[in-house]
Design a protein around this nucleic acid. Structure first.
Lengths: 228, 228
DNA sequence: ACCTGAACACCGTTCAAGT
DNA sequence: ACCTGAACACCGTTCAAGT
């Protein structure tokens, strides 16, 4: 016995929030946050929402659209800073804001690198950055170079080679691995031993390294701007 | 009627090269080069080799091992340059060598960003780079920073945001898209129009941009070295 | 002892039968 | 007209039956 819309059934069934694209995407983010992007399947997402798998396709074109939409929600979380004096502190703070946001959603980096076109929130983000630089006197040409020099660092992450950002290795296994490495590859091994805390470098703090690299690049931008 | 090993059948069946890990991995590279990493499945690879799917598991632990091995062959193709005067020209030429190699195997970038541990050829490559910098007087600390500043650029590619490196867009559609973009996002749109050739910037040559960014970063390294 | 085909447990998505 | 369950066409991999 179906009822008119807007009149929820008073029976034992709990009030069902109607499915919507917004609810589908928000739940996708929550699911990926909790269990990783590998757990974000159409079937598992539907189970999470307690709906039929096929009902999802009413709000989402396909899996790609689902990932685009979930990622867009994450990028939309980045709060734009606007109260800093000068382009350099503003850009630096914005990028660290983006980094903090992506840290809350560790799966997002991996999704970003598979996307081929910008989502609305990403375009909004880029528009504010381009505007910031243009207002500071950067030429179009220089803004273009800036985007290529920065690359993924604009969104707060660097594409490091062969590391698992979600699961930092146990320092003790890292130290053992570094010593084994040194047997075959003495020079990279020496470095690994140093970085794994035994050599006095005090381990590798990726956040510190990110900021160091960011400042090196910001230095470069300032010089490019002066020479432009 | 099986024959002794080494005595190929003289019948209609063509001489079968016996399956080996090497042959499996080399064929995987060829298949991915031709049809993309999406076409590199256990079943399709077996078909390419004209063997049973399950026979592959005799030479490869699983799919991850297959990807690791195929990628290792690619990285092993990078020829190390050793005849340049000074660390900066040597590093620059090595990185551009790596870029040329990855360009011959467009799928490799996408595989690299999913790997979590270094393959043998990658360690050999890194060992030569660490050695180059150490021999030039870089401290361990500075080499460590260098690796983080460089990131994926060490292997000749930058992680740009939202672009499809394999399929550069048609300039004409790009120009139309840029103009549509400018309606909603004026500042990023202005840049897109300029980059899509209409504004006089002459399009976007990713190879040129890569070298510009590389030189900016190499400048930064030289300054870090001077200050160290 | 070794190889291999069928089968398992998943995917994303189509499609037509059902209400 | 709308929803949805079964089914399709794929995966990577296990496992036991076969030679």
């Amino acid at each position: 016995m179906p009822r008119a819309t807007g009149t929820p059934s008073p029976r034992t069934t709990p009030d069902r929030i109607p499915l919507s694209r917004e609810r589908v995407l928000r739940t996708a983010v929550v699911l990926a946050d909790r269990a990783g992007v590998g757990a974000l399947g159409m079937r598992s997402l539907a189970r999470e929402l307690a709906v039929d798998t096929m009902s999802l396709y009413h709000h989402v074109r396909d899996k790609e659209d689902l990932l685009d939409g979930a990622l867009d929600l994450v990028i939309d979380e980045i709060v734009l800073v606007g109260d800093r004096p000068g382009w350099r502190p503003t850009l630096r703070a914005t990028i660290l804001e983006a980094r903090a946001t992506l840290k809350r959603h560790p799966w997002a980096k991996g999704v970003i690198v598979t996307r081929t076109s910008g989502t609305p929130a990403f375009l909004r983000y880029m528009d504010s950055i381009v505007g910031l630089l243009r207002d500071a006197g950067f030429s179009l040409d220089l803004v273009h170079h800036t985007i290529h020099v920065m690359g993924s660092r604009l969104l707060g992450f660097s594409q490091d080679l062969f590391d698992d950002p979600d699961h930092p290795p146990d320092p003790r296994v890292a130290a053992i691995g570094a010593r084994q490495l040194a047997m075959t590859w003495p020079r990279v091994g020496e470095l690994a031993i140093a970085v794994s805390h035994e050599g006095g470098l005090g381990g590798c703090d990726v956040d510190v390294e990110f900021e160091i690299a960011l400042d090196v690049i910001l230095d470069g931008l300032e010089r490019m701007r002066a020479a432009d």
